[in-house]
Amino acid sequence: MLEVFIFATLNGLVTGLLLFMLASGLTLIFSMMGVLNFAHASFYMLGAYFAYSISLYFGFWSGLIFAPIIVGVLGALVERYGLRRVHQQGHVAELVFTFGLAFLIEEAVQFFWGADTKNYQSPDLLDFPLFTLFGQEFPAYRGFMIGISVAIFIGLYYVLTKSRIGIIIQAAITHPHTVSNLGHNVPLIFMGVFGVGSALAGVAGVIAGPVLTTFPGMAVVLGSIVFVIVVIGGLGSLAGAFIASILIGLLQSYAIASNLGMPDLLNLLGLEFGRDHPLTDLWTLTLPQIAPILPFLLLVLVLIFRPTGLMGKREQ
């Protein structure tokens, strides 16, 4: 039982940190623009595909460095020549723009790389068990995922709170006019933040690609959960996004690892139903089966009971 718990926790942490790498960029971009960027997870997918192609010629590590840079530049260009123009038409236009962009990127990915799953592999260098506990191995690559996520977040935290540019970004998000009046080029700052946010999604794609498989639907699969996270965490709150990411990561991981199900619950209540009952499918549901819908269940509950999310501020 203990080994199941420990491994479920570690795997939940891997997923949670990965989710936060997407959610953090999405939150920063949301704070800036005031709208959710539906194409955010598409940049994650692009990160995985670019890294896959680069890894074929130059290896995994080159992909890890160059794929996020390419994705970041793409993101900055989308902000500069797309969103900034659409912004003048209001929030609905922006929302529809990012929605369209998400579809466009998915189609483009299928066009250039095909609809099949790519054989994007983690590097041989990390192909060993990091440690063995109760006879079960924890892959080094997963440890690497945790390490790189934590390193990036510490760096990001340091830049955002301690550096001059970080202070300017914080102020520009809440008081763009005032910051501009002090002589800072706010549109350039926003383009930069959009680029870095996209690059972060790209990094997530690069390191998740080998584990979660690289296929044209990967943006939709993870993207929907990332939106759940920013809503649960409270739109615009980085701390909330972090808590929600880890929470969802762990929740899903524990649900998958557990072998509990409706039969156990019914036994506990002293009830028993026959195999031929019309609702047999419902009575035999297990927790691993419903794990994928748990985030959405949480989303609905949070929206009903705490509409601002865990750390969100009430909109004025």
């Binding site: 001059r164 202070i167 300017i168 914080q170 102020a171 005032t178 910051v179 002090l182 800072h184």
Partner: peptide, 13 residues
């Protein structure tokens, strides 16, 4: 900027 310190406010200028 209410969440930034006095010194950070000045640095922004």
């Amino acid at each position: 900027f209410p969440t930034l310190t006095v010194r950070q406010n000045l640095l922004l200028g």
